[in-house]
């Protein structure tokens, strides 16, 4: 079963107030984000609940959800480590950095560590090209990355 927490409900009220009453489906992405923040990923139950709230079918919710890459429909680690692999980062050695991190975590890109702590992902341009290479851990940017800085950041993940 999925239910929004009380804190989420407060947020939902604020979110819905942003859009015209007859266009509440505009709140779909924010509500998916909220569900993911709450559960770590988006479950079918959450999709059903969100569909009910916004008066759209759960199929529709799933269709929108799977269009956007920031939504996970399967469980991920506590920390999602994403490396930008686009051109500016590519020119600045993101490949090696990613490989380094993968070795360090003992997993391949797309995988989660057995202790469910880290998931390693490739990401397309994160809009921090002048500070390449860029890494994001959950929602936080880490820029001008080096292997040493990767070590530091991963260590700070408790």
């Amino acid at each position: 079963m999925f239910a929004f927490t009380e804190a989420s409900e407060t947020r939902i009220e604020k979110i819905l107030a942003k859009y015209p009453e007859s266009r509440k489906v505009s709140a779909l992405l924010p509500l998916l984000t909220l569900a993911q923040d709450q559960e770590g990923y988006i479950t079918p139950e959450a999709m059903i609940e969100i569909g009910k709230r916004l008066d759209v079918s759960p199929a529709y919710v799933e269709s929108v959800c799977t269009f956007y890459t920031m939504y996970y429909t399967k469980p991920v680690g506590k920390y999602v480590v994403k490396f930008c692999i686009n051109i500016s980062c590519h020119l600045n050695g993101c490949d090696n950095l990613m490989e380094y991190t993968a070795r360090k975590l003992g997993i391949k890109e797309g995988e989660t560590t057995p202790d469910k702590k880290f998931t390693l992902l490739k990401e397309e341009c994160l809009a921090a090209c002048c500070e390449a290479p860029v890494m994001q851990v959950n929602n936080k940017y880490h820029v001008n990355m080096t292997p040493e800085k990767v070590d530091q950041v991963l260590e700070s993940c408790k």
Partner: peptide
């Protein structure tokens, strides 16, 4: 939405 690779001015 700043998403054009190479662009980070809006950020």
């Amino acid at each position: 939405d700043e998403s054009e690779p190479g662009t980070c001015k809006d950020r």
